[in-house]
Design a protein around this nucleic acid. Structure first.
Length: 361
DNA sequence: AAGTCGGGGGA
DNA sequence: TCCCCAGACTT
């Protein structure tokens, strides 16, 4: 264990990557960065971190903001439950904890959206508490160096790697924050998933995977994911300067984001008749005279567990639109205000590609 | 224990 | 295409 920690320390002293939250001691900002970086590459999350820090400098700013504003700031980053949980936790900190960020592992772990990894990261970075982080990088480094083939996504594996990570932290002469940073930086920069830099690795002398030529086989993951196909037919209902929208409130993808009235259909192909007879058409248009035109081709978006194909139908009402009250849960939004709504990527693609922001009827 | 939740980047 | 990314929550 001491060979591992000592070599890691040497490597870290000359190779760590500079990031804006390194050395940060404001627990709020550390928490913010860790939530943003869950399952997200540093390069992808960085601009979001800067944006959030600017718009919400303190936990009070975040707690007091409308959720739609937070969702809009999060737009495009994915895994939107992180944003919802971030808001809920901010309100909890302000209203229940009187604005004081929790300073124990258990207290931090109790925040919505904070699991074992994030709690350990905040506890060590903000308070130098001795909790070892175990993220994707750490799984990889540990499984390779010790040649552990237990699947990292199994209950047994999580326990085993957590124990190993704790022992490494105990053995390290670095402070908890520095040791944790070193483990993750080493995994990200040197012990990479593909094409790791084994030939000049300071750990290769005792790395089980390297000695046995099994670097490319570790770590082991057991679960496989199946993707479902889904077909969305979006009704882009234009009523003068306004367009119809809805908020996705159901328990499904993109919860609390906005989209056009949608018909989910068994296939990407649908006739104009089928669109005109659909439930969203009935709710948004009814018997009113309307022109309809399909935008081609269908747009694709791949999520973790499903592949979405979206067809956009542009619809123009000849007369007055339905009143707001009979339209609920749909809403009418001015086109010039569309930039205030948070949309899934596929809707954003349509808005950008078709310049709906700029179209003036 | 298994399923669900985004989006982007690299090979 | 497939895999992975400073994972967590729900069922």
């Amino acid at each position: 264990m001491s060979f591992f920690t000592n070599q890691l320390k040497v490597w870290f002293s000359q190779s760590h990557r500079p990031l804006p939250w390194k050395g940060e001691k404001d627990a709020y900002l550390i928490w913010l960065s860790e939530i943003i970086l869950q399952q997200t590459r540093v390069e992808q999350g960085l601009p979001y971190f800067e944006r959030f820090r600017e718009r919400f400098p303190t936990v009070h700013d975040l707690a007091n903001a409308p959720e739609d504003t937070i969702m809009k700031t999060w737009e495009g980053l994915g895994y939107y439950s992180r944003a919802r949980n971030l808001h809920a936790a901010a309100k909890y900190i302000v209203h229940t904890l009187k604005g004081k960020f929790p300073s124990t592992y258990e207290g931090i772990r109790a925040l919505k959206g904070v699991g074992p990894y994030t709690a350990a990261a905040i506890a060590s970075f903000a308070y130098e508490l001795p909790y070892a982080v175990v993220d994707g990088n750490v799984f990889r480094v540990l499984s390779r160096f010790w040649g552990i083939q237990t699947p990292i996504d199994s209950t047994e594996g999580k326990k085993q790697f957590a124990n190993l990570a704790d022992r490494a932290l105990q053995a390290s002469s670095l402070a908890p924050s520095q040791h944790n940073q070193a483990m993750m930086d080493f995994g990200a920069i040197h012990c990479k998933p593909k094409a790791p830099l084994c030939s000049h690795c300071p750990l290769n002398g005792q790395c089980a995977a390297f000695q046995n030529k099994k670097v490319d086989q570790l770590p082991v993951k057991s679960k496989k994911i199946k993707k479902k196909n889904r077909y969305f037919h979006y009704l882009v209902v234009n009523a003068g300067p306004q367009v119809m929208l809805r908020k996705r409130t159901e328990k499904d993808i993109w919860r609390n984001l906005y989209e056009f009235p949608v018909l989910e259909w068994p296939e990407a192909k649908a006739s104009e008749q089928e669109i005109r007879r659909s439930a969203p058409w009935e709710a948004c248009i009814g018997d009113r005279p309307a022109r309809i035109e399909q935008i081609s081709p269908p747009q694709q978006q791949t999520l973790t567990h499903q592949k979405i194909q979206a067809v956009f139908w542009e619809i123009h009402l000849e007369d007055e639109p339905p009143s707001i009250s009979e339209l609920a849960p749909y809403i009418l939004a001015d086109r010039k205000n569309l930039s205030n709504f948070a949309f899934p990527k596929i809707i954003d693609w349509y808005l950008g590609d078709n310049s709906l922001y700029l179209k003036l009827v």
